[in-house]
């Protein structure tokens, strides 16, 4: 009994129940179409960028910051890969490395202003989102291909239809059933969990979120740690930019431009406090998957038009966050159990 009570206090457990609930409801409504592993997996690959970036934004939000520039870095990485490969004539893997480096630099720049100049994270990353998407546009202007068309023809597809090389990242299958993207996502989840929950670095991040001053006085280089979280987000955005480019076979500067709010939704739904100091990678991952399945299941089982998914997702987000706020402030408890004296 005590164990059950403790389990219910863990937000991740409630998320797990929600996920199971989704499977039950959608599965009951339309078992033939919904319960196909291949389609469920592909529903996650549709939003893989949001899932991946949300993992890294969790780090930033635990330190008490916020990052709304990550989605513009996706487009920047994509166009850097495209231009340096197609117009610059570089090896595709060199351009991938170049893109990751550029994204890390972008993150470092914003992180520097936030950590060392003490500017509010929201403002800097807002400016960053304008700046980096603008840079993406500028770079796309250097290409011979018109910007609206997107650079395509990445290597490579064999004659049998199998994807090798760069395109294997976004389109390939491992062991015949597991999309490479999902495999990379799982690896990233494990890496991030270890980094956040099992290393000294992770403990420092939590301490900075709880009390930055105390962290500073206990000898942690808070500025460097805060800056490093933004670099991590930049790298995360680069990874999803690479996967997205490889998946759609098109390098454009506006890829992922509309993801910002979905990323924050996933992180917050995963139980990370926006004021910092609390959160977990597993929570974020579960929340991302819940949103993916929701977006996949609603049109399939209840005939919601796929254009109009913002409405139900928004309603569910509001219900969950309000319910959580009520539960934590005790208003819900008092509503159901009025005037119970504990003394």
């Amino acid at each position: 009994m005590k164990l059950v009570k403790q389990l219910f206090k863990r937000w991740e457990f409630i998320l797990l129940i929600l996920l199971v609930l989704e499977f039950v409801v959608f599965g009951a409504a339309n078992p033939a179409k919904f319960l196909r592993p291949a389609s469920i997996l592909s529903s996650i690959t549709n939003y893989i960028s949001i899932c991946i970036i949300a993992l890294f934004v969790t780090f930033v939000m635990i330190t008490g910051g916020i990052d709304i520039q990550a989605s513009s870095i996706i487009g920047l990485t994509s166009i850097i890969i495209g231009v340096s490969w197609s117009d610059g004539g570089l090896n595709i893997w060199v351009s991938v490395l170049l893109a990751i480096l550029a994204a890390a630099l972008c993150g470092a720049l914003s992180g520097f202003f936030i950590a060392y100049c003490g500017v509010q994270p929201m403002v800097v990353t807002l400016g960053g989102s304008f700046l980096y998407s603008g840079l993406g546009l500028l770079i796309s202007g250097m290409s011979k291909t018109p910007a609206y068309q997107g650079i395509s023809g990445f290597p490579s597809k064999t004659e049998t239809g199998a994807f090798v090389g760069f395109r294997f990242l976004g389109k390939g299958m491992l062991f015949g059933f597991l999309p490479t993207q999902i495999f990379i996502y799982i690896v990233l989840i494990i890496l991030c969990s270890v980094l956040l929950h099992m290393t000294k670095y992770g403990r420092k991040i939590f301490l900075i979120g709880v009390n930055p001053q105390a962290a500073e006085y206990s000898g942690i280089n808070t500025r460097l740690v805060i800056m490093s979280t933004y670099i991590l987000t930049g790298i995360g955005a680069a990874i999803s930019g690479i996967l997205l480019t490889s998946n759609v076979d098109s390098a454009k500067s506006d890829l992922g431009a509309t993801f910002t709010l979905s990323i924050i939704t996933a992180v917050v739904l995963g139980g990370t406090l926006s004021t910092g100091g609390k959160g977990s990678i597993i929570g974020t991952a579960l929340a991302s998957i819940i949103i993916c399945i929701l977006r996949y299941g609603l049109p399939l089982c209840f005939g919601v038009s796929s254009q109009n998914l913002d409405l139900p997702v928004g309603v569910i987000l509001i219900i969950i966050v309000v319910g959580r706020a009520l539960a934590e402030s005790g208003k819900l408890y008092r509503f159901f159990m009025p005037k119970k004296k504990t003394s």
């Binding site: 939704t265 966050v321 706020a325």
Partner: peptide
């Protein structure tokens, strides 16, 4: 309800967009 404003208005943003 005391929900952080960024998150709550994100939710209403989605609803209104719908």
């Amino acid at each position: 309800f005391g929900v952080p404003s960024l998150i709550f208005t994100l939710g209403t943003c989605g609803v209104i967009r719908g």
